[in-house]
Design a protein around this nucleic acid. Structure first.
Ligand SMILES: [Mn+2]
Ligand SMILES: [Mn+2]
Ligand SMILES: [Zn+2]
Ligand SMILES: [Zn+2]
Lengths: 143, 143
DNA sequence: TCCTACTTTGTAATGGTTACATCCGAGAGG
DNA sequence: CCTCTCGGATGTAACCATTACAAAGTAGGA
């Protein structure tokens, strides 16, 4: 469940991160984005609104948001990081056919073995790869 | 639990992958390796045995082994892939302090929600990040 | 021996990400 | 208004793991 844009703005204030025009635009894009965009996708989409936008600014902003805990970097792909505004309480599924990255509702907090309680866990990611229902039905049709 | 080198050689034969000198060396290195080496670590280590070894060969071999299902590529790090010869029935933990990647025994096969049985899952990875016990005790000492 | 398919090798290219120097722009203070 | 300052934004170059590609080597069969 995503937070509203206004709530996110408030979070920026609370963390004393100045609400620059570019940062708000990146945040708004993540907010209205249904999937899990890459830095490049964010850049290409926002460049239509901010003609002078630099890709470095997108990376800088994403790092600021990530360090503040508002955004999570998803490493489900080898050479392309995806970004998620939602709280990190779910897994992700990448369809090897269409490339979509979907949410997988599940409790990932309780995964780490209790027997290993001497370890400090800061982050948990659960990544699945396979074929999504849409692509599966497409495969059957082509038989 | 890792298979013996001889058992691995047999697997190559079964899959009709020719047992070239370089492939056997890569496999032997993964077999005796305790951690989860990167392609570069494999290359540097084996270059002492095979002076003419090319890094491309290491990557080619790893891809062949991965496609045959004998080796798993672990994407716990953003910028470098690690390789695991063990069966993919466990999670991984990366210590943000010392960089070690450890195994986390757990049943990752039963993780995908049964409600999503219309999805075909080919691969599951569970990645934790945090601080390992060794580094935690080190932090306490330095207080 | 010759042929052919496979493997290895070296080098160049790729592409996401980061480092760095420079530029800009909103305020504070005069 | 003017100027100073500093965080943020920008553009370019560098980084670096990985891949593409072409050339060279190799084993095995006819
Ligand atoms: Mn998500
Ligand atoms: Mn492992
Ligand atoms: Zn799909
Ligand atoms: Zn450690």
């Amino acid at each position: 469940m995503k937070l509203s844009f206004d709530a996110l703005k408030q979070q920026l204030k609370d963390r004393e991160i100045s609400l620059s025009h570019q940062r708000l635009k990146v945040l708004a894009f993540l907010c209205r984005s249904r999937g899990h965009p890459t830095a490049d996708e964010i850049y290409l989409a926002l460049r239509e609104e901010i003609a002078t936008l630099s890709k470095t600014t997108v990376y800088n902003t994403l790092r600021v948001l990530e360090e503040s805990g508002m955004v999570q970097a998803i490493g489900i792909e080898d050479h392309e990081t995806r970004f998620d505004l939602s709280p990190p309480d779910h897994g992700h599924f990448k369809c090897l056919s269409c490339g979509t990255v979907s949410d997988v509702p599940m409790d990932i907090q309780a995964l780490f073995p209790e027997a290993m309680n001497h370890w400090r866990v800061d982050e948990t990611q659960v990544n699945f790869k396979g074929i999504c229902p849409d692509c599966l039905s497409g495969e059957e049709e082509s038989k």
